[in-house]
Write a protein that binds this DNA or RNA. Structure first.
Length: 255
DNA sequence: AATCAGAGCAACCGCTGGCAT
DNA sequence: GATGCCAGCGGTTGCTCTGAT
């Protein structure tokens, strides 16, 4: 299922990610954000290339990602959009909150492509009889379809609102990039604390897409109500595990 | 119980486009 | 306009799992 870990000529690790690496990457991004993917692994203490880190975060570690268990509704959306747009996976992913383009692509190749090939006729028949899909929908639970309706902000591997996507934007000499960009950081007391400038300017809200999801799966950062801590329920259970990792993270000393 | 083939999916690779200089 | 850097995108690969024989 996963590639065996190997090292390339530059000493960069490749292949499957270990739990420790996951924790380290997650802890680092939670603490500092992903201000520059190429530099990030160095500061996070990972022997990975930036691209690999980005992929891991975008496709697996980000909060609010759903894995597997595609609903009939989601399948239909994928099929429909694929008919309309072809292999524009990022575009399709934009319509399916919680799904990544990579996962959708895989799902298409392993499930839907074949089904479409073989099952055109049966699909047409299904359309005339909604019983099957209704039953399936009920089996999958309404909660999931509700989450689709609520989560109107897509999660893309290529989220356009990713923090400081341009390295050029980042010119701060501060040792704390997260603070400079209004990223929510962990305090010494071990609690998530939003930086004070978290409203208004786009560039000061770098984590809208990736991070600012509450337990119901939709962004809360744009609301005028009280600030809802990102990563709410998703990480609550595991936060204790991350603090020690964060403690180990090197003190940043940027040029 | 052993073997094999196909399925599934995480991760890699190479190309492209956007942006800064 | 040319160049370089970076993130994003889509195709492909390779390893593991699972079911059939």
């Amino acid at each position: 299922m996963v590639r065996a870990p190997t090292y390339d000529e530059n000493g960069m690790k490749k292949g499957a990610w270990s739990k420790e690496e996951d924790d380290r990457l997650r802890a680092y991004i939670l603490k500092y954000g992903h201000w520059n993917w190429r530099e990030l692994p160095k500061f996070a203490g990972l022997s990975r290339c930036g691209k690999s880190c980005r992929l891991r975060w975008m496709n697996y570690l980000r909060p609010n990602l759903k894995h597997g268990n595609y609903t009939k509704e989601e399948e239909d959306i994928i099929v429909k959009l694929h008919e309309e747009h072809g292999n524009k996976w990022s575009l399709i992913a934009a319509k399916l909150p919680g799904r990544t383009d990579n996962e959708i692509k895989n799902y298409w190749h392993t499930h839907l492509k074949r089904r479409n090939k073989n099952g055109r006729k049966s699909d047409q028949m299904k359309e005339h009889s909604t019983e099957a899909s209704e039953w399936e929908a009920s089996q999958n639970g309404e909660a999931e379809s509700q989450s689709i309706k609520l989560a109107d902000t897509p999660i893309l591997e290529s989220s356009p609102l990713s923090p400081a996507t341009s390295a050029g934007e980042f010119s701060s000499s501060s040792s704390d990039h997260a603070l400079a960009y209004g990223v929510n950081v962990f305090t010494d007391q071990g609690s998530l604390a939003p930086f004070e400038n978290t409203s208004g300017d786009f560039w000061r809200e770098p984590f809208v897409s990736d991070n600012a999801y509450n337990q119901y799966g939709y962004s809360s950062s744009s609301s005028n109500g009280p600030f809802v801590l990102p990563y709410g329920s998703y990480y609550d259970d595991n936060l204790d595990l991350y603090y020690p990792v964060m403690e180990e993270l090197p003190v940043l000393d940027f040029p």
